[in-house]
Design a protein around this nucleic acid. Structure first.
Lengths: 163, 163
DNA sequence: GATATTGGTCAGAATGTATGTCTATTATAG
DNA sequence: CTATAATAGACATACATTCTGACCAATATC
């Protein structure tokens, strides 16, 4: 049953135009990653993978960048640690702190995700035509700039559509 | 502290290009709606507002359209009922079923949300230029079509990004 | 050294989603 | 028309993700 169009979809709000492809993309990515050896990575963990760094990042810093509490980030990091995707090493420069780093498995996941993302974009570019594709990306970049001006204060919680 | 760029943001994946403006838009909408008399509407409720109909919709149907279980949709409908945004009337054509309908307050919320959405889009169109704006919308519609072809099976759960 | 700040944890709660099971009702097969 | 299957929704339960508030240990500042 291919879900009927929603109201916002029907009237084509910008929100719907952004949300729908994003969700489809994310769903397909996670499904494929699950099939390819990473069934235990859930969407919430992306907050970690997006903000981790090769040198190792602190929970507090990652939390701030992801705009969530350090407790929440800590919870996600813990879960990834249990699953073997990250390791925690003491920060030599501050004995309170720990550095969160990708393990080999963590790096493998990230690589797989990026490869998949790239492959999907290639396919889309192919289907839409290179010019259209490039134009779309340019306009989205522009949109990001203008929206930042319009709504400068991303107020802590961003959620919205269909989580 | 304006959160540093995430990794995907840095390398500009399509996902990030769609997610970021969507989140900014949603966050600003909900913040403004909260300030304007609707502080008790949370993002999750949008699943209800997107799929409700003027004649009244069944929980089961809304659940299917929103691609969630009827239990989950039931939970959201309940919460909106308690808050006075929807009413439940028996379905005359099926005594098992109830129709979920917007109350006046529910309709007022929906109207406010749509007005705000429209206002935001106007502002963006203004800032980006009407031509660019129209082009962006056209390309996003195209993207939606192509993505549907690429990933035909939205597998139940859509989540992904940074909800 | 005294005090304030910061990195991280512990405890508890709220929210949103899913399963599994059940009842009442409707629809269908024979 | 009855027996059986399917459907609408509820209840109970569990899990995942996030938040607040209180706290400890280490660091930085005065």
């Amino acid at each position: 049953m291919a879900a009927k169009k929603s109201f916002t979809e029907e009237i084509g709000t910008l929100g719907a135009l952004l949300r729908l492809p994003y969700q489809a993309l994310a769903a397909s990515m996670y499904a494929e990653l699950a099939e390819n050896g990473f069934p235990d990575i859930r969407p919430a963990f992306s907050s970690v993978f997006r903000h981790i760094t090769p040198q190792g990042a602190r929970v507090t810093d990652m939390a701030e960048q992801a705009q969530m509490t350090k407790q929440s980030m800590g919870y996600l990091v813990d879960a990834l640690h249990e699953r073997g995707y990250v390791e925690l090493v003491p920060d030599p420069s501050d004995r309170r702190a720990k550095l969160v780093r990708l393990t080999e498995r963590g790096q493998a996941f990230l690589d797989a995700a990026l490869a998949l993302s790239h492959r999907n974009e290639e396919r889309l570019a192919e289907r839409m035509g290179r010019d259209e594709w490039a134009h779309l990306r340019r306009l989205l970049e522009r949109l990001n700039v203008e929206i930042a001006v319009l709504a400068p204060n991303s107020p802590k919680k961003a959620g919205g559509g269909a989580p």
